[in-house]
Amino acid sequence: MNESLHALSGAYVVDALDDDERASFEQHLPGCLDCQAEVASLREATALMADDAALTPPDSLRSSVLAGIKTVRPLPPETGARQKPEPVGTATTMAKVLPMRPRRRRIATLVAAAAAVVAVGAGAVYQPWQDNSSSTPPELSAADQVLAASDAQRHSLELDDGSTATVVRSLNQGKAVLLTRNMAAPPPGKAFEVWLQDEAGTMIPAGMMRKAGDHKLLLECDAAKATGVGITVEPESGSAAPTTQPIALFELKGA
């Protein structure tokens, strides 16, 4: 479960998030079908609340609006830019797993990216519907379907505790699974949080691992465009963004 961000859906639709939270949630939304569906349905409920508040507006408002639109040209419909993102990677374009060296740079990148999002958001045209496709791959895929997928790509790393962790991604299914074997337990009061890194370098919460041992974790949200998978140590309740350096960072290419 992606508790920390998913739980913001209600506050998001009533505009009760602060700017940072809103930016995080809007980053998360395009890749998460669960949240998209929940936001859409809660928006319908929210609209009902306004029924009970209805007040006849002054005629002057109507005249100003009608005068105003005569000077404003409606935007053209969006055409090619919004088409469904097709998985284009093939086996040959997938890079091998790289050693986990550039940890610090990655974190710096994501902080910079988050700051950029806030800055852009302040001036951008607000759209109630995110600029993501409603036709992202259907959420049918259980972990085993990903593991069995004909286009499954595997990326393994050895962790500091000597155990092995593997990310398996199916571009066709748009999903990834994290497998661990004999993983050490997280520190007391902590848990392992798994992240999908998007093209902008932002780490999106993708799941939690609270115990030692073997895991087969289906990562939340759309993994088709992810450029990496990271694991960090976080408080047990999870974090909205990494607060520690990754203990593992898988680089995925070819999305």
């Binding site: 859409a40 319908e44 609209a47 935007l75 969006e78 109630p128 519907w129």
Partner: peptide, 24 residues
């Protein structure tokens, strides 16, 4: 409402009702 007029073409009925889009 001027914003609604300007961006009406971006409304997508598959993602929710018109009234919720407007009130949002």
């Amino acid at each position: 409402f001027l914003e609604i007029w300007r961006t009406a073409s971006r409304f997508d009925v598959s993602r929710g009702s018109a009234v919720s889009w407007i009130l949002t």
